[in-house]
């Protein structure tokens, strides 16, 4: 892995995902991800949203070359600080995982080793990745645990994961992910398994830490309001394809694809002391095995017409982006006035 990039990045992008396609090995037609592209700049917070089954977690795993057995990268490149880190047929270079890119997974009980003490799980990152001695690593672990808001961190070193609450476990995961001071943090549904009040605490923690370290973040979630509080740009994924992308304000105020509109109408939020309960989209997300011609969303789309079945929509740039970011949507009718009012919420 080359040194901290001084000048390599062409346009300042920290992470660039280009045409990423992931399929099931032995079944090249079954695409879990289909030509996914987007970038994350230094210090930027970008969200990847979609229903479950949209492939969003697969993106996270692909970035770190952690795709589990039947899944494999079929095409595309991922570049970090100007240098390629993920390409078909190549393993991820040393020094990226943990050191440049950290990751927090969804279920901390599953993600932590049940038979290893919590302190050691944090410390080994430091001894292996930063060459610290065990004593230094232990001291730094206590600092990290305090930083993520764990009370009495010194006492928690010898504790096992199942002895902690869900919120505390997730804080430990965050401490592990940040131990080596990566430039990019991937958070894959980090609060989905937590109660809403604990979720709020953990999200606030993530935002604070990001601010303090000037770190870029890829925040993956199915919860649109949560994303609005966390990210400045959003990429909407459906059936393995990018449906829309742009700044959060543009996309939420002027959604250009019916899917995004549906997602917005489906969200539950608490706006201005008012609980707004969402109305989910009819039907459910397709599995990678389902072959759907044209636009993958057309069977559930209220605006679908013949062209949607015949031709796969490519991303169109919307002219009226107001907040400095490109606003694109992969819909044949993107940017055209609604015939039906589909704005909910």
């Amino acid at each position: 892995m080359p040194e901290r990039a001084q000048s390599k990045a062409e346009d300042g992008a920290l992470l660039r995902i280009d045409g990423l396609s992931v399929s099931v090995s032995q079944q090249p037609g079954m695409l879990v991800l289909d030509d996914v592209s987007f970038t994350i700049g230094r210090g930027e917070s970008v969200a990847l949203v979609g229903e479950s089954g949209s492939g969003k977690s697969t993106v996270a795993l692909a970035v770190l070359d952690l795709l589990p057995a039947p899944l494999a990268l079929s095409s595309g490149t991922i570049t970090f600080a100007g240098a390629p880190i993920v390409r078909p047929g190549h393993a991820i270079p040393q020094g990226v995982r943990g050191k440049r890119i950290g990751i927090v997974f969804q279920d901390p009980l599953d993600a932590l080793n049940p038979t290893m003490r919590v302190g050691e799980q944090v410390a080994e990152t430091l001894t292996e990745g930063a060459g610290m001695s065990s004593r230094q690593a232990r001291a730094r672990t206590v600092e990290l645990l305090a930083e993520v808001g764990i009370p009495q961190p010194r006492d928690k070193l010898r504790v096992y994961p199942h002895e902690l609450s869900g919120g505390q476990r997730q804080r430990v995961m965050i401490a592990i992910a940040l131990a080596l001071e990566p430039d990019l943090l991937i958070a894959d549904e980090p609060t989905t398994a937590l109660d809403v009040t604990i979720q709020r605490q953990v999200i606030d923690l993530l935002l604070r830490l990001r601010e303090a370290r000037q770190m870029a973040m890829l925040f993956i979630s199915h919860d649109l309001p949560l994303v609005a509080e966390v990210a400045s740009r959003v990429v909407v994924l459906y059936g393995g394809r990018v449906m829309e992308s742009g700044s959060v304000r543009d996309v939420y105020e002027h959604p250009a694809s019916p899917y995004t509109t549906g997602l917005i109408a489906a969200s539950t939020s608490f706006d201005e002391a008012h609980l707004v309960v969402g109305r989910p989209i009819r039907g459910s997300a397709p599995s990678p095995a389902e072959v759907i011609p044209g636009c993958r969303f057309h069977p559930r789309c209220e605006r679908a017409e013949e062209v949607c079945v015949l031709e796969r929509p490519m991303p169109r740039l919307l002219p009226a982006s107001r907040f400095g970011e490109r606003h694109e949507a992969a819909c044949h009718f993107a940017g055209m006035p609604d015939r039906k009012e589909a704005h909910g919420a």
Partner: peptide, 15 residues
């Protein structure tokens, strides 16, 4: 109140 307040806002920039 805290339970409700913990729910995120869809368009936080509005208020």
């Amino acid at each position: 109140m805290a339970l409700l307040a913990a729910i995120p806002r869809l368009r936080p920039w509005r208020s």
